[in-house]
């Protein structure tokens, strides 16, 4: 749902670089070059970026509609 913190295969931290990746790719940069720039070398880490679908934003919309999970205010 949200971008994983680490690469599933090698365990390298990748989550902190996802937003920059997304921003630059949306601006029209080549994803491969952005990954090189960010220092993501191995293909296990690279597929984490290329294959990820950030679903949380859609879930957030639902949350706004229904007012979130009902949990007692603490």
């Amino acid at each position: 749902m949200m971008v994983p913190i680490r690469c599933f295969t090698c365990g390298a931290p990748i989550g902190d670089k996802y937003e920059e990746f997304l921003k630059r790719v949306r601006k029209g940069e080549d994803p491969g070059k952005v990954l090189d720039d960010l220092g993501i070398k191995r293909y296990c880490c690279r597929r984490m970026f290329l294959s990820h679908v950030e679903l949380i934003d859609d879930v957030i919309k639902l949350s706004e509609l229904y007012g979130g999970r009902k949990v007692k205010e603490g």
Partner: peptide, 30 residues
């Protein structure tokens, strides 16, 4: 991850930019 406040000034996340969760308006985490 930058929103985490640590009891030890040295032991902190290596980066402040790890997304932990996303909140819709009115939602909270404690």
């Amino acid at each position: 991850s930058g929103d985490l406040s640590s009891s030890d000034p040295y032991v902190t996340p290596i980066s402040d930019r790890f997304p932990i969760a996303k909140l819709a308006s009115g939602q909270a985490i404690l």
